[in-house]
Design a protein around this nucleic acid. Sequence first.
DNA 1: CTTATTTCTTGAACTACTTCATATTTATTG
DNA 2: CAATAAATATGAAGTAGTTCAAGAAATAAG
Lengths: 194, 194
Amino acid sequence: MSKDQLISYVKKFVPLDDIEAKQFVSNFEEVNVKKRQFIVQPNFTNKHRVFVVKGAFRSYALAPDGQEHTLQFAIENWWVSDFNSYIYQHPSTLFIVALEDSTILQIEFNKEQELKKVNHKFETFFRIMAEKGLAFEHRRIVINLTHSAEERYQNFLSNFPNFVQRVPQYALASYLGMTTEFLSRIRNKRAKKS
Amino acid sequence: MSKDQLISYVKKFVPLDDIEAKQFVSNFEEVNVKKRQFIVQPNFTNKHRVFVVKGAFRSYALAPDGQEHTLQFAIENWWVSDFNSYIYQHPSTLFIVALEDSTILQIEFNKEQELKKVNHKFETFFRIMAEKGLAFEHRRIVINLTHSAEERYQNFLSNFPNFVQRVPQYALASYLGMTTEFLSRIRNKRAKKS
DNA sequence: CTTATTTCTTGAACTACTTCATATTTATTG
DNA sequence: CAATAAATATGAAGTAGTTCAAGAAATAAG
C-alpha cells in the first residue's frame, strides 16, 4: 500500500511507533495523476504538499517571452510543491505538471499545521525536510555560479543518473540554465567524434 | 544588550515566555569579529550557526580558477553559515568573511540539537527558519533562470536596497552571477547618458 | 597627509551560449 | 500502423556577457 511507502520514508528521519505512523499518514490523500496533467498552476494557491509515490513531476516558471524554466524535478520518494505558494499560502507563480502517469500522496496545508502542533516528532520531520531542501538548493546555486553549461550537465549526470532517463531534454536544459539546443550539442559532441 | 535583539527576533516567529527566552539565548555566545576576518573556511567544519547582531558578512566559494562566487550576504538580524557543512557536520567548502567590524551571536551545533529536543517551540523556530530560507532560495533560483544580468541587478536593488550600500561591487556581481566589470557597466550606463 | 593597497572604470577583442530556421527522430493517437 | 504531434538535432549567424589590460578613484595603513 502506498501509505506504507510514505511511512518508511518518514521513519528514515524520525522514529515513529505504529500509532504515530498511522496518524501521520491518515492526513494524506492518495491521488492518481495522468501524464501532462497539472497539479499546480499560477494564480491558484498551492494547497497541498505532495509526496511522489510513483511517477515524475516537474515544476517550472513561465517567462514573459514564453520560455519555461524548470525549478524542480521529483520522482518516487521526493516532494514537490511551489514552496513559496505553499508555506505562505499565497497564489502560485509556477506550474507543476506530471511527466508520467503518477500516484501521489498529498496533505492539506491546515492538516500539516495540525500535525506539527500535535506531535513534536512531526515538527522535527518537517524541519528536517526543509533543512535538507535548503542545503540542496545551496549546493545547486554554488554549482550554477561556478560551473559552465557542460560541467553543470556532467554534474547532474553523476548526481542524478536515474533522473536523466526520465525527464525530457528541454526540461533538463532549462533546469540547468541553458537551451535545449545547447544541451543537445553537449550530449552529441562526444558521440560525434567516435 | 545584544541577546535582547535575538530574543525579539525569535519572538517574531514563536511566542516565548521569559524563562524560555532566557534559556534559548543562554546557549549563544557573543563574539566580535573584525573586518576581513574569516569565521568559516574550507575543510574546517562549520561548528556554529551565527546570528548577525551588527555588521555584515559574505559567504563565497572559490572556483579552481581563483574566482570568488558569493552565495550569501548577511547583515543585522540575518543568519549566516555554510549550511551544508553545519547541518551535516561535514567539512566546509565555503569562506565566510566579515565585510565590516561585526558582532555575532553563535550557537554550537550540539547545543542547538539539545534546544530543539527540549522544547517543541525551539524546534518550530528552526523549522520556520529553514522553510523561509528554502522559499527564499527558490525565488532566487527562479530569478536567476529567468532574468538577464541587468534585470537581476535591478531586482536586487528593489528587494535589498539596504544591502547595496554595504557590499562591495565585486561581491554583489558574483552574487548575481556576473563579472564586476559588467556590473560596473550596468551601473554607469544610465548615469552616462544624462 | 603620503604611500600602498584595494576597488572600480573603461575600451577592445573574444567566446560561451542563444536564436532562428529547418530537418530528423521519437512518441502519441485514432 | 498510419498519421499527427512532440521532442531532438544541426548549421549558421548573432549577442550577452567575459577577459585582459591599464588607468582612475577610493580606502586603508604607516
